[in-house]
């Protein structure tokens, strides 16, 4: 089953990240991606630009309304994702535990959501 792992971090703390820590976080991501690829379960991963670049679009009565910012103000912000094909939730939890989510001294978290697959046409 494919699981999407949504990485949430505290953006304001992420600004304080030191170059050493940044190198460390990057290296960990590369090693997780490499390990997942070797196991043949890697289905993609990518970081997102910060929520300051986010635009939220709503359609009301046929008109498109765009507003600045993410759809919800939260303590932690979506910062990236992985899609991994795991045997079950326990395996997904093991992988999620390897993905770095804390930075700049602030903790983060990884939300695991099973992908539902496309319904038939």
């Amino acid at each position: 089953m494919r699981y999407m792992m949504l990485i949430y971090t505290q953006e304001n703390a992420a600004e304080r990240i030191t170059p050493e820590e940044m190198e460390n976080v990057k290296a960990t991501h590369w090693s997780v991606m490499q390990e997942a690829t070797q196991k043949g379960i890697f289905h993609g991963a990518e970081p997102l630009k910060s929520t300051t670049t986010a635009t939220t679009v709503r359609v009301q009565e046929g008109k498109v309304f765009s507003t600045d910012g993410p759809f919800a103000e939260t303590k932690e912000q979506l910062a990236g994702y992985y899609i991994l094909d795991c045997k079950d939730l326990d395996e997904a939890i093991e992988w999620a535990g390897k993905i770095p989510s804390s930075c700049g001294g602030a903790s983060g978290c990884v939300e695991i959501r099973p992908l539902a697959g496309l319904p038939p046409r």
């Binding site: 089953m1 045997k87 079950d88 939730l89 326990d90 695991i112 099973p114």
Partner: peptide
């Protein structure tokens, strides 16, 4: 069922 929680005894390290 939907999140595929395994019907299993956890591995020793868990």
């Amino acid at each position: 069922q939907e999140a595929h929680i395994p019907y299993a005894v956890p591995p020793p390290h868990r």
